[in-house]
């Protein structure tokens, strides 16, 4: 099975591990990822805050490449890229003038035929059919993750089809339960981590992260799991600072979902490059005899 793949800039830079793990884990399930040729930055949230036309035009070039790839599905693991591409596709389909204006400048024209999927839309059907469990050799016993979706996995500024419940999504829970983990039920799974505020408005970001963190700890989670590289980096890299400010003393590793699937598939920590985190991710897995 072949699917088009858009990694986005982050997966080729600070969250390279997510790119490595995604290819490894999906490859194990017989999915061949075909990276879009010569893709460009999706513009993220910054483009929509700076220039509305650019916020559609930047993803449009990628959509044009995908529409002409001969493939019918495109997977985008990064939540921000996924959200921006989905929104751009929707806006181009509903605004022909805008579409013509952008297509006039594109070598590969947007047609609107590619189906955009988040990584969960690929994983959930495999988990539900039992295919995922067949590919794994280990049960993630003892792992009690707080599945953290953040903003961009389920909330969109336009009326796009949302593949999961907006306020209480279950995709990650379905996948992790299929692997033997016991995800906790909690209230902050779709709350904002502060996103770019960690860089430009740190106090706001720390406040938002402290609420997410406190609820996860109070509900007995022993780690976070996420699909968003921005949420992952924020909760991981700024955890120490947030804990000091809000007087919290528990550490919480922040895993990508692909990391835990990889562990269940008995991939080694070296292969998955699990050590490239700020908060220790190895200790908990060793304690639970998972690695």
């Amino acid at each position: 099975m072949e699917i088009a793949y858009y990694p986005g800039c982050t997966l080729h830079a600070s969250s390279q591990i997510y790119d490595i793990q995604t290819k490894l884990v999906l490859g194990e399930m017989g999915i061949n990822l075909n990276e879009l040729e010569d893709w460009n930055c999706c513009g993220a949230t910054s483009a929509s805050k700076t220039d509305d036309f650019l916020s559609v035009a930047m993803p449009a070039r990628n959509l044009g490449i995908a529409d002409n790839s001969g493939l019918s599905e495109l997977v985008i693991p990064c939540s921000a890229c996924y959200s921006r591409m989905l929104v751009a596709q929707h806006r181009l389909a509903s605004n022909h003038r805008l579409k013509d204006e952008i297509n006039a400048e594109l070598t590969k024209k947007v047609k609107g035929n590619i189906r955009i999927m988040s990584i969960l839309e690929v994983l959930v059907p495999k988990a539900e059919s039992g295919e995922l469990a067949e590919k794994t050799t280990k049960q993630l016993k003892g792992l009690e993750p707080a599945c953290y979706y953040g903003c961009l996995q389920t909330r969109f500024p336009y009326d796009v089809p949302v593949p999961d419940d907006v306020e209480n999504p279950q995709g990650m829970e379905i996948v992790l339960k299929a692997l033997g983990a016991n995800p906790i039920d909690w209230s902050y799974k779709t709350d904002c981590c502060g996103a770019s505020a960690t860089v430009n408005d740190i106090d706001t970001a720390l406040l938002l992260m402290s609420k997410i963190f406190k609820d996860a700890v109070a509900r007995g989670a022993n780690c976070f799991v996420t699909t968003c590289p921005m949420c992952q980096l924020n909760l991981d890299a700024y955890q120490e600072q947030m804990k000091q400010k809000y007087d919290i003393d528990q550490d919480m590793p922040v895993y990508f979902i692909t990391e835990l699937i990889g562990v269940a598939m008995d991939k080694s920590p070296e292969e998955l490059q699990i050590d490239r985190h700020f908060v220790d991710t190895i200790g908990l897995l060793k304690e639970l005899n998972l690695i």
Partner: peptide, 18 residues
Amino acid sequence: AFHKSFCTAANHLGRLNE
């Protein structure tokens, strides 16, 4: 400054270099 710099950098080479 953050959002402006992001767009400038992203459009300079087409991909964002952090």
